[in-house]
Design a protein around this nucleic acid. Structure first.
Lengths: 338, 338
DNA sequence: GTGAAAGCGCTAACAC
DNA sequence: GTGTTAGCGCTTTCAC
């Protein structure tokens, strides 16, 4: 059915090795032979199969990406795009493993399907435990973290979440805000590291400002984060003058809701996000920019170096965050809301 | 370094074949032997390598996904998630090939890297030419289209774009609108099929309504689609009373812009989208719902069947679209805008 | 229930 | 510049 190297060799009247060389090292084959071989290959619709070469090389040419959820939103989409762009050019396949729920998680670390079946593994925004990292380590392949701790990893890329949220807090403080509310969806430990730092960074930054009242509010997944936000804004007793959302995608829907509630941004309330993701610019949302695509490109390059056994100049890299001041933040209102 | 089947066999005092069977067909191995082998395998951190088995089986256990862009937005993210969920469980790797730009495109169809290196190929929302499909066909693997024509494909899944946009037009007509404007970003032919149908479907639906004025407006990629929209709304001369966007992601930013322009939805202008994607519900955008995740799951199942050589009950499947009437559409204003 | 051995398709010494 | 040959690590008949 499918033509193999032997068929081409036969048809071209040369040996298997010559056919192989024609594709792998064309410069080692004479022009005439090369053309003959190529003609035969074209006639038979032949392409070199990677599988055999993979077997010989000892490499799998697969690289795994562990993510905490099967749902691919902004951050993960950017990571996939960045990794894939670099890895594909280098001849590697990126294969995605969503690890959703604790059973799937246990199963993954029990079976460790990447062992003997991947040349490296990325762990993205995944609150992986030290034990799990150790277990992953028995696969004897490089482990690269994306927004994770660096413990047990061969390399990591990530942002300084604390620094990012501190930029937000200082910006609001400078505008005169003295009562901030941080809103986030309660997250499972599988998504922990980056999120945790963002929240604790918020507290730290607020503590550093005299007379600043700050609260954090964890809300169950779903629409209710907006209800919580509105309720807090309308509270009789010392309502916040600014809402800090854990990520842009939670802040954006608030704009629609506020409009219906007759509340204006930033007149009645200042709002901030985190990520500078989809629609943040259009919504004029003050936020912190991070560039997961760039981090992924760098992470992929680190992975390739590690696979080659090359030393890495900076195994643990922190990428810049940047405050994007837009129109969703302003001086706090001086008069009460009603 | 890495333990292979021979090492385990040696340590367990059995043959390679028995080790192989312990993992591939445990029921063919006696309890006692199995335990011995497993103990040895655990001690050596051994896992079966897929590469060798792949070579023997003649399968590659790779399935390619061709997409028109390296950027992964809502639709593609849903497709990837759906395909991956099914294919991973079946032991296949999903590998993503972004085909961006005509050089990359020509290179891809020239080299045809999927030939001998994938067991099936998905083509997603990619205006592939008949010649390209034919060329792809020489790879002798199933080709499954997602939102493509069915010409030359072994199976396809998709929605009826024309029907979808017609639901929008009829809804607006019923509300009393008689002047519609369809806005879209001009798209390259690589993204053609689905988009083209949506636009021509709009025209057809409008033609079917007496006294309905309809125009379509192609805008260059970028922010300017909003400027175009605002300008049209404010036009002296017979401005549209409803704007129909090609997809939700173009309509959403308009909400923010309109607010700043002092225009209200749906009071001053009705707005519709297409997709029911991120924030459509929160923005109360009237739109047409499609479920790319579900289509992808179905496409993946079709692919697996085709690989197995099984007959497919419905190779060319059309998935339902559903009108989501929300608060962004209402009766047209009766008074002039100013 | 287990072992011996062939071979999947290719690559890389090594010889000529 | 080209051919011969030995494997890469596993699976799978075929014996026993």
């Amino acid at each position: 059915m499918k033509a193999s190297i032997g068929d081409v060799a036969l048809k071209a009247g040369v040996s298997n090795a010559t056919v192989s060389r024609t594709f792998a090292h064309p410069e080692q084959v004479s022009e005439a032979t090369r053309l003959k071989v190529q003609a035969a290959a074209d006639a038979l619709n032949f392409s070199v199969s990677r599988s055999a070469g993979i077997l010989k090389s000892g490499r799998t040419y697969r690289i795994a990406l562990l993510v905490g959820s099967g749902v691919i939103e902004w951050f993960t989409a950017e990571i996939i795009a960045g990794l894939n762009d670099v890895l594909r050019d280098a001849g590697y396949d990126l294969v995605i493993y969503p690890i959703e729920g604790s059973e799937a998680r246990d199963a993954f670390f029990e079976e460790l399907p990447v062992r003997s079946n991947a040349d490296a593994v990325f762990v993205s925004s995944f609150g992986i435990s030290p034990d799990e990292v150790k277990r992953l380590g028995t696969a004897k392949i490089p482990i690269i973290g994306i927004n994770t701790t660096s413990e047990g990893f061969d390399a990591t890329v990530g942002i300084n979440d604390k620094e990012g949220i501190k930029l937000i807090v200082r910006h609001l403080a400078k505008l005169g805000h003295r009562n901030l509310l941080y809103l986030y969806e309660s997250f499972s430990s599988t998504l922990g590291f980056s999120s945790f730092n963002r929240i604790s960074g918020f507290q730290e930054a607020c503590d550093a400002v005299d007379g600043l009242t700050a609260r954090t509010l964890a809300v169950q997944k779903g629409d209710s984060i907006l209800d919580a936000a509105i309720s807090e804004i309308m509270a009789q007793d010392n309502p916040p003058t600014a809402l800090c959302f854990h990520q842009d995608s939670q802040a954006i829907p608030l704009f629609f809701r506020l409009q219906r509630s007759g509340l204006s941004v930033p007149g009645d309330i200042s709002v901030t996000g985190f990520d500078d993701s989809t629609f943040a610019k259009e919504a004029e949302l003050t936020t912190v920019r991070q560039r997961p695509y760039d981090m992924a490109v760098d992470a992929a390059q680190k992975a390739l170096a590690l696979i080659e056994g090359q030393p890495i100049e900076e195994p643990f890299e922190t990428f810049p965050v940047q405050l994007q001041v837009r129109n969703s933040t302003a001086k706090p209102r001086t008069a009460p809301l009603l």
